[in-house]
Amino acid sequence: MNLWLTLAVNSIALGGLLFLLSAGFSLIFGLMRIPNLMHGSFFMLGAYFGVTFLDRGMNFWLAAIASGFAMALIGAMVERFFLKRLSGQELPQVLLTLGFSFIIADLCLLIWTGDPWQPTTPAHLRGAVQAAGMFFPIYRLVIVGVAVVIAIALWLMVDWTRLGAMIRAGVDDAPIARMVGIKVSQLFTLIFALGAALAAFGGVMGAPYLSVYPGLDAEMLPLALIVVILGGTGSLLGALVGSFLIGFLYNFGQALFPDLAYVILFLPMVLVLVLRPQGLFGKVVP
């Protein structure tokens, strides 16, 4: 097996998955300024929903979308009934989202037990690409494709629709947006639900490859954080580039410098925060 080529392709594949995970996080963080520490839980819970739907014989894509919808509903409720009352208060938001992440993790353990769940790769996506001495599963490349499609869809939404204009206004300056008549409150609920749905969708997409197990939430949350900090909060392009960057750092770091794998992963985050706090593609918030 060609090590370098495999690592490179896998970096891109992991990047695709990371984008699905962190696009929603970036929107929530950028627009609402909420450090949503339950984002990893959304990913995990979504994946559990997905494997349950698949277990009942549902079509793979349908399961992923259904899981996204279910999570959107949950996200919207959490936002409406809990987070809404805490707008602008970072500390209580941190506590609340952490509290919910405890609750979700324990509920998942209760419902889905400690067993790992790994759905089979959908039949039409099995197989592998063989090229230049490399053997690479098609499914992971499909994830990249899906990530790109979602990235384009999100970009179209943010840049070309009325909703997107409202989001942009909200990211840039929420008080002004409110003054010009944008219903920021409803917008926030919508974005939070969308972010939750994207994470859940990503969770289902990732399940045949990462599997779902207790602790997946805590593994994914820091990755989402790094991606968004690197790329810049609220910037979709940033989340996309950040995802692929972290994909590369993760793969090559683990293979080349296993002792320092996590230093390699987190050091860029520190550097960006210190040298360019708005992230690589973020706008300077006045």
């Binding site: 954080l225 987190f266 050091l267």
Partner: peptide
Amino acid sequence: RSTGIGFLMITLALGQILWGIAYRWA
């Protein structure tokens, strides 16, 4: 160099680096 969420994120990342060393630098 930062306050608010920036401060939170930098300390988080620094903490993770130390954890990563304890965890991986066997």
